[in-house]
């Protein structure tokens, strides 16, 4: 009688072991084992051929036609001396067009640009395309603008940054953050309190730089550099910094709107 139970137990164990074979359980894998019931992490995959071309933005930072530098004197359109102490902007939403202005599919990308850096990875384009023209936005799209920076990896431009580029009174990103000093009284020095600050960001203030003649042929597996100029002083076109020098967007919408409108014209193909 006892032997009977031992036989049942051994049989059960054998059935259990054989029916619960380990192996690769992913049908998409090269070594898929249809008899495997439990994964042993052995799945192997064939690397798909890279059919895309990577894109870098290579940016020349300018103030008008001069090379841009922080803490350097510039003059606004109303004769006021000023210097930048902070300059950041988000670039996003690339759109690429061929010669016939057909849209070429490309993923959404984001870059947080500042004058201290020239090269930014900016996603991919199909690897066999002729890119004739591109649009690029200053700011981030409405979906990203409503997202939680805490959910992005530390390397993402949409993650929390220092200094912060996320509003502390609202959800959403600061699309453009420029700050500096301005000689308001024209006495030749930047006195205490003579500052300007423009923090611009609201869905309606996404500023698209359209019709940039990028002109390149993408090659699968290779990286193409798109060379752009950003005129940081151009953001202040038409603004008299001695009298209108502070906006967090909602507290001075006219100034924020002017900066946003200017932002649609500050990016050009590098000459």
């Amino acid at each position: 009688m006892k032997n009977k139970y031992i036989i049942i137990a051994i049989t059960g164990l054998a059935i259990s072991v054989s029916s619960c074979r380990k192996g690769c359980t992913d049908p998409a894998a090269e070594n898929y084992d249809a008899r495997a019931k439990k994964s042993d992490n052995s799945c192997e995959y064939v690397e798909p051929a890279d059919t895309t071309s990577s894109v870098n933005l290579v940016i020349t930072h300018l103030s008008g036609s001069q090379t841009f530098a922080m803490n350097t004197d510039y003059v606004d359109g109303f004769g006021n001396d000023y210097q930048f102490t902070r300059a950041q902007m988000y670039l996003s939403s690339p759109k690429y067009m061929d010669e016939n202005m057909n849209l070429i599919s490309a993923p959404m990308e984001y870059a947080l640009v500042s004058p201290s850096q020239t090269t930014y990875a900016f996603g991919t384009v199909p690897g066999d395309a002729h890119i004739h023209m591109m649009d690029i936005a200053v700011g981030v799209d409405s979906v990203a603008n409503a997202s939680d920076p805490g959910t992005y990896g530390a390397d993402s431009p949409l993650a929390y940054q220092s200094p912060s580029v996320h509003w502390n009174w609202n959800s959403g990103y600061i699309f453009i953050a420029i700050e500096g000093v301005v000689d308001i009284d024209g006495n030749g020095t930047y006195d205490a309190g003579e500052t300007f600050l423009c923090h611009v960001g609201l869905n309606s203030m996404l500023a698209v730089n359209s019709g940039l003649l990028a002109h390149f042929n993408s090659v699968p597996g290779q990286t193409h550099n798109i060379e752009l100029d950003i005129d940081w002083s151009g953001l202040l076109t038409g603004i008299d910094l001695s009298v209108d020098n502070s906006t967090h967007t909602m507290d001075n919408m006219p100034l924020a709107t002017t900066v946003s409108n200017n932002a649609a014209n500050v990016i050009t193909i590098h000459q």
């Binding site: 031992i6 049942i8 137990a9 059960g12 259990s16 072991v17």
Partner: peptide, 8 residues
Amino acid sequence: VYILLIWT
């Protein structure tokens, strides 16, 4: 035996 069977 039955416990062993169920467990396995």
